[in-house]
Write a protein that binds this DNA or RNA. Structure first.
Length: 278
DNA sequence: CGGCTTTGACCTGCGC
DNA sequence: GCGCAGGTCAAAGCCG
């Protein structure tokens, strides 16, 4: 009983510290944490650059090796830039223009386009019998709409990233009109949080090199449910730790949320204190 | 019961 | 200004 309330108090103390410390200079432990996160961020940045390079190289090889498949993927972009009707949304055409030049230099593009939301495409092969518009890319998505578009009889699904509440990333998933087993996912924006595990990105890359024909964007890679499950099991503690950090960082960015939580915690804290007095 | 998907309605931007 | 198409909202239903 006593140890339980002690750990609860410690947890609340930590939460209060995380939320209320913003205006004053961070205590040493947080400075260390900040330093560690900065280092990790740099490491991830270089990892991402390496990934982009190897992706570009692999993609070039793939196009050389299997012309038809690559052609399907490329024609998707090409079709977008020369649509059946003259009418097009400006946002989409801008995105398609960037994408038709390519997924190949999406990293370079991403660096160049500072103010515009980043847009990139991901092509994933699926079982034709599988009617779900799900592209597993390591992030958690919430579907908020579906629409049948004019140039494609297959419906387009709209998703928002639900991994972090403040994440602005959206994705559209639609089957290719040419190849029904090819899913085309268009991503817009940048994730403001970690992927569920940075190691997953590495694994995804190694799986790519092991022979699937899917394309993937700068933020992640499609994967199967089974392989993901196995790896998640293997990395539970690591994953959980990262998840907690990610959630904490995204939540503490939201000032309204921190204010509400601070109020709630102080209320709860007093509640616990009074309970202990009794 | 909470979170997610579905789906019709509504909003917005663009071309004519 | 009107119509069309893409994008988003939100209520209802489903599922674990």
């Amino acid at each position: 009983m006593e140890s339980h309330s002690l750990s609860l108090d410690l947890t609340i103390g930590f939460a209060k510290q995380s939320i209320l410390q913003e205006p004053s200079p961070p205590p040493p432990c947080l400075q260390e944490e900040l330093k560690r996160v900065t280092e990790e961020n740099m490491k991830l940045t270089s990892m991402l650059a390496t990934m982009c390079e190897s992706y570009n190289a692999l993609r070039a090889q793939l196009i050389d090796m299997i012309g038809p498949t690559a052609a399907v993927a490329s024609s998707e972009g090409a079709r977008s830039s020369s649509p059946p009707s003259a009418k097009r949304k400006s946002t989409e055409s801008a995105g398609d223009a960037a994408n038709s030049v390519s997924s190949t230099n999406s990293c370079k593009k991403a660096k160049e386009e500072g103010s515009k939301p980043k847009i990139w495409k991901l092509y994933a092969r699926t079982d034709p019998s599988d009617s779900s518009l799900v592209v597993r890319d390591g992030y958690q998505w919430r579907k908020y709409g579906q629409k049948v578009t004019r140039d494609n009889p297959c419906p387009r699904a709209y998703f928002r990233c639900s991994f972090a509440p403040t994440c602005p990333v959206k994705k559209k998933v639609q089957r290719s009109a040419d190849d029904q087993c090819l899913l085309v996912a268009t991503y817009e924006g940048e994730h403001n949080h970690y992927q569920s595990s940075a190691a997953e990105v590495e694994n995804a890359v190694s799986r790519k090199t092991a022979g699937t024909a899917d394309g993937f964007g700068p933020a992640g890679a499609p994967e199967t449910k089974d392989s993901r499950g196995e790896r998640e099991e293997a990395r539970q503690p690591e994953l959980r730790e990262r998840l907690v950090k990610d959630m904490a960082s995204s939540l503490t960015k939201d000032q309204n949320f921190t204010a509400v939580i601070a109020a709630a915690i102080s209320g709860r804290f007093f509640g616990i204190s009074t309970a202990q007095e009794m």
